[in-house]
C-alpha cells in the first residue's frame, strides 16, 4: 500500500499540477492584495482618517441608513441587521473587526475562497486522477499488476487527500507571505469574536467569546479542508464514472457555480438545503452570518456534506471494482 501511494505521489509530482496551482493562487493573491490595499487607501482618503473606530462607526451609520430604505428584500434586511449588530458589538468592546495585517488578509481570503476558488483548485487535481489513466491507456498496466483493484483506487484517493492538504497549506502560506509585504506580518494574537448566534429575532450575543486570531485561523483551515475533501471526493467519483476528463470537470464546475448562484436565491426553496453546493460556506457559521436557508447550521451543513462524501466514495469504489476495462 505504501508503495502504491508513493507511486501515485510520484505521478502527481511529475504532472507538476501542484506547481500550476501554486502559481494560480500566487497570482490571485497578488491581485487581491493590491485590491485590498487600494480599498483601504480610498477609504482613508474619503474619511480623512485611518482610525478604525471612525470607519466602523461610519459603516454602522451607513448601514442604518440603508435599512431605512423600503425597497430592501426581507432576507437582505435581516442580513444587514445582523451585520449592524455585530459591528456595534465589536465597537462596544473596542475590538477591530479587521485588524490590518497578513493574518487578517489570510482569514478573509480563506473565507471568500471556501465555496468556489479552493474547490476549483482541488478539481484540477481530482478530476483526472482516474480518467487520465483511461485516456492515456495506462489503466491496463495499472490493473494487470497483482494488486487488488480497490487498493489501487484507495491509493489514488489517499493521494488526493494528501494533495488537498498540500493545496490548503499552499493557499495559506502564499496569502500570508505575499500580503505580508504590504500589510505586515504581525497580528496572529489579535482578538476576534466568535459565537454570534443567528436566531429568528436577530442576533444573539450571549454566547460570544473572544479568540486569538491564530486559533480562529486554524479552525477556518480545518473547515476549508473539510469542504475541499468533500468536493475533491465528488470530482473523484466523476473521474471514475466519466471517461472524459473535460466532461467530468464540466459537470463539477456547473455544480459549483450553480451553488454560488443558488446561495443568493434559495431562501424560499427550503429543500434546496440538501444540495451539497449550498452548504459549502462553513466558515460563515463561525462568523455568525445568517444561513442562506432558515434552519441551517454547522452540524446540518457538515452532515449533508458527509452524506454526499460517503455516497460519492461508495459509488467510486463499487464502480471501479466492477467496471470492465478495455
Amino acid at each position: 500500500m505504501n508503495k502504491l501511494i508513493q507511486n501515485e505521489m510520484l505521478k502527481l509530482m511529475a504532472k507538476k499540477r501542484l506547481v500550476v496551482i501554486a502559481l494560480i493562487i500566487g497570482v490571485l493573491v497578488i491581485l487581491f492584495t493590491y485590491a485590498q490595499y487600494k480599498q483601504v487607501q480610498t477609504q482613508r482618503e474619503k474619511l480623512g482618517t485611518s482610525d478604525w473606530r471612525t470607519m466602523v462607526q461610519q459603516q454602522i451609520v451607513d448601514t442604518t441608513n440603508r435599512l431605512s430604505s423600503s425597497r430592501l428584500s426581507d432576507e437582505w434586511k435581516k442580513q444587514l441587521q445582523i451585520t449592524l449588530q455585530q459591528q456595534q458589538y465589536y465597537l462596544d468592546h473596542d475590538i477591530n473587526p479587521a485588524e490590518p495585517g497578513a493574518p487578517t488578509f489570510m482569514r478573509i481570503f480563506l473565507e471568500n475562497s471556501i465555496d468556489l476558488f479552493i474547490p476549483l483548485m482541488v478539481m484540477v487535481i481530482a478530476s483526472d486522477l482516474v480518467s487520465s489513466e483511461h485516456s492515456l491507456g495506462t489503466v491496463k498496466l495499472l490493473l494487470t499488476r497483482p494488486v487488488k483493484r480497490w487498493k489501487v483506487l484507495l491509493s489514488k484517493y489517499i493521494t488526493l487527500c494528501l494533495a488537498v492538504s498540500l493545496i490548503i497549506a499552499i493557499a495559506g502560506i502564499l496569502s500570508y507571505v505575499i500580503s505580508g509585504i504590504v500589510f505586515g506580518y504581525k497580528g496572529f494574537g489579535t482578538p476576534i469574536l466568535t459565537g454570534f448566534n443567528v436566531t429568528d429575532e436577530g442576533l444573539n450575543t450571549s454566547q460570544v467569546k473572544l479568540l486569538s486570531l491564530w486559533k480562529f485561523l486554524l479552525m477556518d483551515f480545518g473547515l476549508v479542508w473539510f469542504v475541499a475533501i468533500v468536493v475533491g471526493t465528488l470530482s473523484f467519483m466523476l473521474s471514475v464514472l466519466i471517461r472524459s476528463t473535460a466532461a467530468g470537470m464540466g459537470v463539477m464546475l456547473a455544480a459549483l457555480i450553480s451553488g454560488a448562484i443558488l446561495n443568493n436565491m434559495v431562501s424560499s426553496w427550503e429543500s434546496a438545503k440538501y444540495f451539497f453546493m449550498v452548504n459549502l460556506r462553513l466558515t460563515d457559521y463561525m462568523k455568525g452570518m445568517a444561513p442562506p436557508i432558515k434552519g441551517m447550521d454547522l452540524s446540518f451543513s457538515m452532515g449533508v456534506l458527509l452524506v454526499w462524501w460517503a455516497a460519492a466514495l461508495m459509488v467510486s469504489f463499487i464502480v471501479f471494482t466492477k467496471k470492465d476495462v478495455y
Partner: peptide
C-alpha cells in the same frame, strides 16, 4: 498537514458547540 487540518476541523466543531463562555467579553 492533513492531521493539522483535521485538528483544526475538530476544534472548530468543538468551539461551535462549546456553549456559553465562562466569561462574556466585557
Amino acid at each position: 498537514l492533513c492531521l493539522l487540518w483535521l485538528i483544526g476541523l475538530g476544534w472548530a466543531v468543538g468551539e461551535y458547540y462549546a456553549g456559553k463562555p465562562k466569561k462574556a467579553p466585557q
